[in-house]
């Protein structure tokens, strides 16, 4: 065991003063093994997702509870789950997977407001938050709270209703979990005098501000053309059945979580190679052994950057 350790991991006479794992043949074997393993992963995912897939525990109920906790801490009224907004969120999530985009606005120019209106929700205020690559509800909420623009959306007093969609799929080449949050407030004007003049809000006849990062739509009625709106009655919100929530809270628990396994294996290989290279530098320097080889420092710089990329790319993102 001791000899094995020395031979494979440390510069020694037995391995010509270069850890066996850093020899050309070993590097080739490791590289080919990784390529083979990636094809094995793809094959397994296609064959049986109960073995290898994406495991997550994000659900609308928990997201709602956590959002309302944050709001109540600031003395704001809690939001109410709205099935129409949840439907809009599901439509938006499906559209993102079908058209393969990660943005508030689709490549064909479709805005979030289209999905909200299509779901039958007539809003006065509406907003949207997106998240991907998070595997638990608290992680999603914390990421939104850490972003000032998303935080502003979540804690806005302008909203009364909320709807979530959690969907798993391949987005821009990445197997991920997508969370769409639609926020809204609808108040129907009942003043008879203005009823004929109040039309469905559109971009041209109302003031609309769309922030590129948060995509908050704030609609204000045209100020002087219309009489002052006297009575505003909140519209009754449809309740959501438990079964509907369960569908939205689809949870999958495969034996191995693919994104986490990929990250851990890739990071492990890089860390082992980096440690071997650093140990190699130290031992060769101490023993003053002359070798005709490449510079270890080159490889250390190269693999360190790759390790940093892996660690950063596995973090979830919000939009």
């Amino acid at each position: 065991m001791h000899k094995f350790f020395h031979h494979y991991l440390l510069p020694h006479q037995s391995n010509n003063h270069r850890a066996k794992l850093l020899h050309h043949q070993s590097l080739l074997v490791v590289a080919l093994s990784l390529i083979g393993l990636s094809f094995l992963f793809s094959f397994t995912v296609k064959q049986d997702q109960s073995v290898l897939g994406i495991s997550y525990s994000v659900n609308p109920e928990e997201l709602l509870i956590l959002t309302n906790q944050k709001r109540q801490e600031l003395g704001l009224a809690p939001l109410v789950m709205n099935e129409q907004l949840a439907d809009a969120a599901r439509r938006k999530a499906s559209d993102m997977f079908i058209k393969n985009y990660w943005s508030h606005i689709a490549p064909d120019g479709t805005t979030p407001w289209y999905f909200i209106k299509s779901a039958g929700y007539e809003y006065v205020y509406a907003g949207e938050n997106l998240a991907r690559g998070f595997y638990s509800s608290p992680d999603v909420i914390n990421a939104w709270m850490a972003s000032p623009s998303h935080r502003e959306n979540m804690l806005s007093p302008n909203y009364q209703d909320i709807g979530f969609a959690i969907q798993e799929g391949n987005l821009t080449g990445d197997d991920t979990v997508l969370v769409v949050e639609e926020l809204g407030n609808r108040t129907r004007v009942t003043t008879q005098a203005v009823q004929e003049q109040v039309v469905t809000p559109t971009i041209t006849d109302i003031g609309q501000e769309v922030s590129p990062t948060v995509s908050v739509e704030r609609i204000t009625p045209t100020p002087t053309a219309l009489p002052i709106l006297a009575v505003i009655t909140p519209v009754a919100r449809p309740s959501i059945s438990q079964s509907q929530l369960q569908v939205a809270a689809f949870k999958n628990d495969p034996l191995v979580n693919k994104p986490v396994a990929q990250k851990n294996i890739a990071a492990f290989v890089l860390i082992v190679i980096l440690i071997l290279l650093i140990v190699d530098i130290i031992i060769i320097r101490r023993k003053r052994i002359a070798r005709i080889l490449s510079h270890n420092m080159d490889h250390i710089i190269f693999f360190s950057v790759l390790l940093l990329i892996i660690l950063l790319l596995t973090r979830g993102g919000v939009l």
């Binding site: 590289a31 390529i35 693999f303 790759l306």
Partner: peptide, 14 residues
């Protein structure tokens, strides 16, 4: 080989 190994790691990861 170091380059191939780096690309293989990223191929596997991505």
């Amino acid at each position: 080989l170091m380059g191939v190994l780096g690309i293989s790691v990223m191929f596997f990861f991505l």
